[in-house]
Each structure stands twice: as structure tokens, then as C-alpha cells.
């Protein structure tokens, strides 16, 4: 009798231990990729028909095909991001894992869910990491635009979808990039581009989903890799349009980023597949 009982006891101990281990193995944070959409974004999205385009980096002959997609008409704002961190506390300043954002994450905020008084809720959110931007996008049922999608929209000026050949195209953007404290202005106060998309250049730099696909080192203006040791098959990606200085600035910016970095004038907007 007692032997039988002992077996039962041992059996339960084993079960119990197994269940303990399960609990332990459970993740203590929701990974950015696994946020289920719980937030509604009011942001209007613009349909971009896609098409083939000449990427800034790549071989001269290789056009890249971009499928039709939707893109937010403006960058995500402070107010919108505030609503996000209220719903997803793991993205609040005091809660965020260091793996996902550096120590300057949302540095200007008064507290976890309080914006500074002098900050416009309609100005673009900045000082956030790629992981945080991606988590916001996923939470609203969207995603980050790919680099190709972003650069395709960036070819437009107010008049035409591809203004790259105009001499003024790059100069105007560079001028906008050089304006100080531009990130504090509200969105949608300037002219939209050909597609009806606002603030592509005049307020903030923007994260893209695959920002880490930019393999440039050193002085990128040569359009060549300065260090072939660092990259495997690196020479397949040199610049095609060496006069587009604005693009050089963007790509250098991207090349210098790591996913947990947060920058005072780097924000994001969302994109989505066309259903």
C-alpha cells in the first residue's frame, strides 16, 4: 500500500516540477514581433501603386520591383505614441528592456505616460528605437515601410512621382535636412508631395523595416566599399546616383544606426500591404 502511495507521490512531484519549469520558460516580455493588434490608428493611409525603380545602391541595371502598398500620410506623432505606451506598458520608458532601446529612449518625457508641456502632441515622435517603432506598427495592424518603399515615395516632389532628374530635387531636400529643431513642428503644416504624403523630408528622419540592409562604411560618396573585409559580397551594392547628396545623407544615417539606438530627430511612419 505504502509503496503504491509512494509511487503516486513521486508521480505528482514529477508533474509539479514539469509545470514549474514550464512557467519558468514562459517569456517575461512580449517580443515586438508578437504584439497582437489592439490599437486603432486614425492615420490616413495613401495608396502607392508601386512599380519598378532604380535603388540608390545597387548595380546600375538592376531595377527593383515594388508591389503596391499603403503608407501613412504623416509620421506617427507624440500623442499617438503616448496612447500606444498606455496600452503596452512594456514600451514605457521605465519598463522597456535595454535590449530593445538605449538609455535615451523617450528621454524628454516627464514620466512614463506624460509628455513634456512644451512639446506639441501633433509633432512627430522621436527618440525611439527600431524595436519600439516596429512594435507600434504591429500594434496598429500595420508594419514599417521597407527601405525600397520609402525611397520610392521619396523620389516624388510636389509635381511629379519621380523628380530625381531635376537639379533642384536633391538641393531642396538637403536644405530641409539642415533646418535646426525641425522635429518640434506639428505634422501636415507643409505641402504634401505628388502622392499626397506629408513631411517626408522636413521634420524627421524615419526608421525603415530593413534599415540594416545598408552596407556602407567610411566615406560613402565614393560609391564603393572602403573595407571589403567587413562585408561578404559587398561590392554588389554601390551608389548609382552620386549627385543625389540627400540620399547619401539618408543612407549614411541608416548605416550608422543600430536597432536599439534612439535619436532626437529620428521618428517613423507605418505602411501596410494592399489587401
Amino acid at each position: 500500500m505504502s509503496i503504491k502511495l509512494f509511487h503516486i507521490v513521486v508521480f505528482f512531484v514529477v508533474i509539479w516540477c514539469a509545470s514549474c519549469n514550464c512557467q519558468e520558460a514562459a517569456p517575461d516580455i512580449v517580443s515586438p514581433a508578437f504584439n497582437s493588434p489592439r490599437l486603432t490608428s486614425q492615420a490616413k493611409m495613401i495608396k502607392i501603386p508601386g512599380g519598378e525603380y532604380q535603388p540608390f545602391y545597387g548595380t546600375d541595371t538592376a531595377l527593383v520591383k515594388v508591389d503596391p502598398f499603403l503608407i501613412d500620410e504623416k509620421p506617427v506623432t507624440n500623442g499617438e505614441f503616448l496612447a500606444f505606451v498606455k496600452t503596452y506598458p512594456q514600451w514605457q520608458r521605465s519598463q522597456v528592456k535595454r535590449l530593445y532601446a538605449d538609455t535615451n529612449y523617450l528621454r524628454a518625457w516627464v514620466a512614463d505616460t506624460i509628455l513634456p508641456k512644451n512639446i506639441d502632441a501633433d509633432a512627430p515622435i522621436t527618440q525611439l528605437s527600431w524595436y519600439a517603432a516596429k512594435a507600434y506598427a504591429t500594434a496598429t495592424g500595420k508594419r514599417l515601410p521597407t527601405l525600397d518603399e520609402w525611397e520610392l515615395v521619396a523620389m516624388a516632389d510636389e509635381k511629379v512621382p519621380n523628380a530625381r532628374q531635376k537639379k533642384s530635387y536633391s538641393d531642396r531636400i538637403v536644405d530641409l535636412y539642415l533646418v535646426k529643431n525641425r522635429q518640434y513642428n506639428a505634422v501636415k503644416q507643409s505641402q504634401p508631395n505628388y502622392w499626397g504624403v506629408y513631411n517626408f523630408f522636413d521634420l524627421v528622419w524615419e526608421w525603415t523595416d530593413d534599415f540594416n540592409s545598408v552596407l556602407v562604411t567610411g566615406d560613402s560618396r565614393s560609391g564603393e566599399y572602403s573595407d571589403n573585409n567587413l562585408f561578404c559580397a559587398g561590392s554588389a551594392t554601390s551608389a548609382t546616383d552620386v549627385l543625389n547628396y540627400a540620399a547619401f545623407m539618408r543612407f549614411s544615417m541608416r548605416a550608422g544606426l543600430k536597432a536599439h539606438y534612439t535619436v532626437g530627430n529620428l521618428g517613423f511612419r507605418c505602411a501596410k500591404d494592399v489587401e
Binding site: D210, G234, A255
Partner: peptide, 25 residues
Amino acid sequence: ATQEFANVLSMKYKKISPVDFSHSN
């Protein structure tokens, strides 16, 4: 998950053809 992991390692990579990738070492 691969993209996320590459970012955790601060690794750059790009698919440059159906069979090849550029990537940092």
C-alpha cells in the same frame, strides 16, 4: 525573427539575388 536577431547582433544584411546575400562579418 531572423531580421530581429540580426539587429540584436547589429548585423547588416541584404538579399542581393535569389541565392546570395551581402552581410557583415
